Computed example of a mutant assay.
Amino acid sequence: MDFTNVEQSKSSTLVPVSGLSFFAVASGFLMSLIPLSLPSFGLSESLVPWLASIFYLGILIGATSIQNLVSRTGHRIALILFLSALILTIIAMLLMPDAVVWLIARFVAGFAVAGIFVVIESWLLMADSSKQRAKRLGLYMTSLYGGSALGQLAIAPVGISGIAPYLAVICLLMLAILPPLLIKRGQPSCEQHQKMKLSELKGISRPAILGCLVSGLLLGPIYGLMPVYINNQVQSTDQTGMLMAVIILGGMLVQPLVSHLSSRISKSLLMAQFCLFGTLGIIGVLEAQSFVIIATSYLVLGACSFALYPIAITLACDALPVEKIVSATEIMLLSYSVGSVVGPLFAANLSDSPDGIIFYLGACLITTCIYMLIKSMQKAHGEQWPLSQ
């Protein structure tokens, strides 16, 4: 497909990053608002894991069918359409506070969010070098997680009851639409997006695919279930919002480090190191007695959990031509979505312990750490094992 934008030499980061920033604040607030606001709409808290899983199921389905729309409309129009669809799902939830309607709305919202992620990620990853891609992805992740952390802090001043918080989310999403609506230049100048063939999928790094899968297994429960867990832990809505913000703030603060290190050391080893430190954060959450130590532990857990996806996706795109980037981001998002769909259900049902979600996150981190260490050692010693590096 030919794009008619003026900037044919390279894509600009202004539109995707500015739109992403408003979207991230809205999305961060919404992800915690939904599980905490269910009682005010007369809905059962037993819906929480199902709402989280069906949202990520929507992302999974969306990740398999986004490329055609992007190819037909271009990145800018596609971003406007997906943000608009997300707004409509929130309006439907407010007009019909029914469990079935909310489940359907969250599924459609997941599809729309998949589109937003694929459009913005591929927009930024269409760069000339792996170093520039890592830098752009670091900017993307910093904007995403910084906005999400800020959104968590809205819980205390805006509240969690009634329609007012949801109207605030809608206003933020409308602001996110303005940059792509008003700025028509700067979308990617790639003339054609190419679908990856089945034979080419074998060449994608297995640690990259697993890294995205585990990222979903971690972040699905963190977004979907952690607000309820923290609220039960600290018995304070204000502190719940603060600790959720701390988790996501950790994800934001670690992005410059991820960007710096991912082009200098083995990405498999880097993911192993973050998983190891994340396990230490899990221990801190379980054993800490003071609020400061608990907050620090959540900061470390958030930093390590949110570090995996950008490392994995840059690993997957390192050896790919620019016309394959949209297709590759779809595949990585698909892997992430599979983890995000099953993660909340596993975390909610794996253990009857009040700390079940924490035990689940710890198990994901330590097993991934071991796998990534094996892969990095295999690569360092030049052994030829069946699995791709």
Rank of each mutant, 00 (worst) to 15 (best):
L144H: 09
S148I: 11
A347I: 12
E45Q: 14
S18F: 13
T237C: 05
L257I: 15
D128W: 00
V101P: 10
V6E: 10
Q255R: 10
R72I: 00
P310D: 04
Y223M: 10
F111V: 15
R76E: 01
C304V: 11
L308P: 03
G241W: 07
F55S: 08
L33K: 11
F41V: 02
D355F: 07
L150G: 12
S388F: 04
S44P: 10
L88W: 08
M141G: 12
W50F: 15
I265M: 15
W123P: 11
V326S: 03
A63S: 15
L269A: 11
A176Q: 05
I294T: 05
Q235D: 14
S337T: 08
F111A: 12
A208R: 03
P35M: 07
V258C: 07
S71N: 08
S335N: 03
V300M: 13
Q8C: 07
M96T: 03
M332H: 08
I313L: 05
C364N: 09
N5A: 13
S297R: 01
G42N: 06
S37H: 04
Y223F: 15
M174Y: 03
P227H: 09
I357E: 03
F111E: 10
A112L: 12
V15G: 12
A176S: 14
G151Y: 07
P49W: 14
L299F: 15
Y360D: 05
S11Y: 06
A288S: 08
I247W: 14
Y360S: 10
G224C: 04
E7K: 09
C304A: 10
R76S: 08
D128R: 02
P35E: 08
L270N: 01
L198Q: 05
A112Y: 10
S262L: 00
H381V: 11
L249E: 13
I209F: 06
I366Y: 09
V292Q: 13
K10I: 00
F306N: 13
S46M: 08
G42Y: 14
L301D: 06
E121H: 12
E383W: 10
A363W: 14
G343D: 01
Y166A: 02
I204A: 10
V300C: 11
F291Y: 13
S290C: 05
I77D: 09
L150Y: 08
Y336R: 01
H193M: 04
F117Q: 12
S262M: 08
L30Q: 14
T142I: 12
A272H: 04
E191C: 04
G382T: 00
L51Y: 06
G58L: 12
L20V: 11
N232Y: 06
C304N: 05
L14P: 00
S27L: 14
L301E: 06
V17G: 00
S11D: 06
A149S: 15
A85V: 15
S32Q: 09
A156I: 06
V17Y: 02
Q235N: 12
S337P: 11
S18P: 06
R133W: 00
L387E: 13
L361D: 06
L333Q: 02
L88D: 07
G343C: 02
S18I: 04
Q384R: 13
L345V: 14
L60Q: 00
I248R: 12
V322D: 13
L38I: 09
L334T: 08
P256Y: 02
I248F: 15
G302Y: 13
S290G: 08
P157L: 11
L83D: 01
Q378T: 13
G62R: 09
